[in-house]
């Protein structure tokens, strides 16, 4: 795979490599995360679940995937 096919993004604060053209649905599949259990922000904006498929990630994008954990 040459570098043109790989894009470096920031995922939950850490560098992460994806294939060029990866959308949010594909990213979640790769991470084995169910979309109904998380919320996603790309570059500070919340992405609605029905837009995961159309949102293609680009080099340098900052992606945050959050879920619920125990808390008081």
């Amino acid at each position: 795979m040459n570098n043109l096919n790989v894009a470096k993004i920031q995922l939950n604060g850490d560098p992460y490599k994806i294939n060029a053209g990866t959308n949010l649905d594909k990213l979640l599949n790769k991470l084995k995360i169910q979309k109904n259990k998380v919320a996603i922000e790309v570059n500070g904006e919340i992405v609605e679940k029905n837009k995961y498929q159309n949102l293609i990630l680009n080099k340098g994008d900052k992606v945050e995937i959050v879920n619920f954990i125990g808390g008081g």
Partner: peptide, 19 residues
């Protein structure tokens, strides 16, 4: 029940979920 919102643990895919 109150719950907190935090980053998903990307590295440990088998980590149990509160849900």
């Amino acid at each position: 029940v109150t719950v907190a919102v935090r980053r998903v643990n990307i590295l440990d895919k088998d980590q149990p979920l509160l849900m």
